[in-house]
Design a protein around this nucleic acid. Structure first.
Length: 578
RNA sequence: CGGGGUAUAGCGCAGUCUGGCUAGCGCAUUUGGUUUGGGACCAAAGGGUCGCAGGUUCGAAUCCUGCUACCCCGACCA
């Protein structure tokens, strides 16, 4: 490719709207252009990278016996009504009508479509296991798209669906899929991707893993110990919290605590540590049901965990009015003196196990000292819940190794789920087993966001000047620069080299524009091709050219007659690393 | 959906508070010339519904009202 003819310009300055590194470089380098919030066009450079990412994924999917298919993006609502998701999924599913007034949708995932496809093709256990996958557009009407390609509304995803006769067979295949994913991210040059167990969310199913590309701009919070033997999404992470279980239980005592509403004020006023307090946090569900979370004063409630415990997906903080309506005093609310009929009470383990905590007295300006859960909560155990609803903090102790936990951020670039029979049962996807008995197919599904992977690769491979593409996904393998191509000797040598490199089947981007060196080199850095060859009047006078690696400051002079071979070898050696 | 911010040439911005001549600057683009190892120089040129709609005024990028789009934080997220 000649740069003089390449569509897509590079920008000198950072676009004001871009914040993350990948977003800045994707815009500045002429990779993508925004069309609408979370909707982008890809220019030729990005398209080439995109295709390479897709092809690596295809190869690994084929290696685990995947068969590529293609399903539509526009689906009839009836299909999603079969699974129940037409109603259960919120406004992130884009619904519309066609000219006949039929309800249609833009697929945000393809379980329904794949079951529709396979249920008429697969009817015997002899045809299993089977896996089909596609690389297809998805549309999700995200509440908030952000960060360039990191979180978008329209995107390309590789989604794979496997079918099995037994749970054991699914589990066996699931491990293979996990292996394939590890290989894929290795080959994409993402050197820091963690697979962590996750919550299955709306997909249903039991076991699932998220593949997290570790980087500061990631949206997900991941809790790990130092050797990664423990790793979990913050939504499910737990810790080995230390509770004061050794103290002598002493009698309740009501104390005057004027104007001490917050935990900090109470602890300061009574001159105790926050670990010796219990706080009461009120939530309200969409159905107006009050929920009281009681947790040790120094620990924050983890709303994701709380939602799982009470089996309700929508929680908001309750206001003072709502709290008073059930007879509590905001700021001084207490698990004592509370009407357990009117409010769902969830005690965190920290409160259930600690001794002699300070808790509210349900009366303005008063607290109780020496609250003890086992002694003071006198209602039947079925009136409340004790669970882990605590947010893990940096430095809390690992539940496995007891070493301090760390908090890191990650981008979810892929996930794998053991779906089970959720869709096959709902949509009547059955096979006959070897006894001639009909049973639902057991399924797994496996996704990777292609554009998100591209952004993540940049997040993990860049310097101040631009991305540093791994050879496996680089838009071209070598960047040839002709410095001052008006000089006949430079033009001749660079054109000849361009031909030689192409004859060696190398992918060459040829900067034939005759720009100033600095201009050209900055563009080259933004395009981030791993190898660069510069032909200049000076070097050619010595019958040599400069050969440099992206990311290294200085290159080597190489005799002109050796350079093509040397480039080919370097590229080959580079591929061998993946 | 809540909070904050922005909208003037392809990109980055000034001008808006305090209304006033023909709307400006840098980069980019075109032409001619000089230049060529980390974003050159000289000369000339093209490029604008000042986000949209309405209003106030002799006069609106600037003041008023309504709307829209985009970005950031939060909520949400197979």
């Amino acid at each position: 490719m000649r740069m003089s003819k390449m569509v897509g310009r590079r920008l000198k300055e950072d676009p004001k709207d871009a914040v993350t590194v990948s977003h800045k470089f994707l815009l500045r380098g002429g990779y993508i252009r925004p069309v609408s919030t979370g909707v982008f066009s890809m220019l030729p450079i990005a398209k080439r990278i995109n295709d390479k990412i897709e092809n690596i994924i295809r190869e690994e999917m084929n290696n685990i016996d995947g068969q590529e298919v293609l399903m539509p993006v526009v689906l009839p609502a009836e299909l999603w009504e079969e699974s129940g998701r037409y109603k259960s999924v919120g406004p992130e599913l884009l619904r519309f009508q066609n000219r006949n007034g039929s309800d249609m949708l833009l697929a945000m995932t393809h379980e329904e479509a794949v079951v529709h496809l396979l249920r008429s093709e697969i009817s015997s256990y002899k045809q299993l296991p089977a896996m089909v996958y596609q690389v297809q557009t998805k549309y999700r009407d995200e509440a908030r798209a952000r960060g360039g390609l990191i979180r978008v509304r329209e995107f390309t995803m590789k989604d794979a669906y496997s079918c099995h006769e037994s749970q054991e067979n699914l589990e066996e295949y699931y491990l293979q899929a996990h292996e394939a994913y590890v290989k894929i991210f290795d080959r994409l040059g993402m050197n820091n991707v963690l697979s962590i167990e996750s919550d299955a969310g709306m997909m249903g199913g039991k076991v699932s893993h998220e593949f997290m590309a570790i980087c500061d701009c990631g949206e997900d919070t991941i809790i790990t110990n130092s050797d990664y033997t423990y790793k979990a999404n913050s939504e499910v992470a737990t810790a080995n919290w230390i509770y004061n279980t050794d103290e002598e239980v002493i009698p309740l005592e009501k104390v005057h605590t004027p104007d001490a509403k917050t935990i900090e004020e109470v602890a300061d006023f009574l001159n105790i540590s926050q670990e010796h307090t219990a706080k009461a946090v009120f939530y309200v569900t969409d159905e107006e049901q009050l929920v009281l979370a009681v947790i040790r004063g120094d620990i924050e409630v983890n709303e994701a965990k709380l939602k799982n415990v009470i089996l309700n997906a929508n929680l908001n903080f309750a206001n003072d009015e709502q709290i008073r309506a059930i007879g509590c005093e905001p700021g001084y609310a207490s698990p004592l003196d509370i009407d357990f009929e009117k409010v769902t009470v969830v005690f965190d383990n920290s409160v259930a196990k600690s001794i002699n905590l300070v808790a509210g007295a349900n009366e303005a300006d008063y607290h109780y000292k020496n609250f003890n859960f086992s002694r003071d909560v006198k209602v039947d155990t079925d009136k409340y819940i004790v669970a882990d609803i605590a947010t893990v903090r940096e430095g809390d102790l690992c539940p496995i190794t007891n070493t301090p936990l760390q908090i890191t951020r990650g981008i979810e670039v892929g996930n794998i789920f053991q779906l089970g029979t959720k869709y096959s049962e709902a949509m009547n996807f059955n096979i006959l087993d070897n006894n001639g008995k009909a049973k639902p197919v057991i399924m797994g599904c496996y996704g990777i966001g292609v554009g998100r992977a591209m952004a993540s690769i940049i997040e993990q491979n860049n310097d101040n000047y631009g991305p540093i593409w791994p050879i496996t996904v680089a838009p071209w393998e070598v960047h040839l620069c002709a410095l001052n191509p008006k000089k006949a000797e430079v033009k001749e040598a660079s054109e000849s080299l361009y031909n030689q490199l192409q004859e060696l089947d190398l992918e060459v981007l040829f900067d034939d524009r005759g720009e100033k060196p600095g201009f050209m080199f900055n563009d080259a850095d933004l395009i981030g091709i791993p190898f660069r060859v510069v032909v200049s009047p000076k070097s050619i006078a010595n019958n040599s050219v400069e050969f440099k690696r992206r990311g290294e400051k200085n290159g080597d002079l190489v005799p002109v007659e050796q350079i093509a071979q040397k480039v080919a070898e370097a590229i080959k050696a580079e591929y061998a690393k993946f």
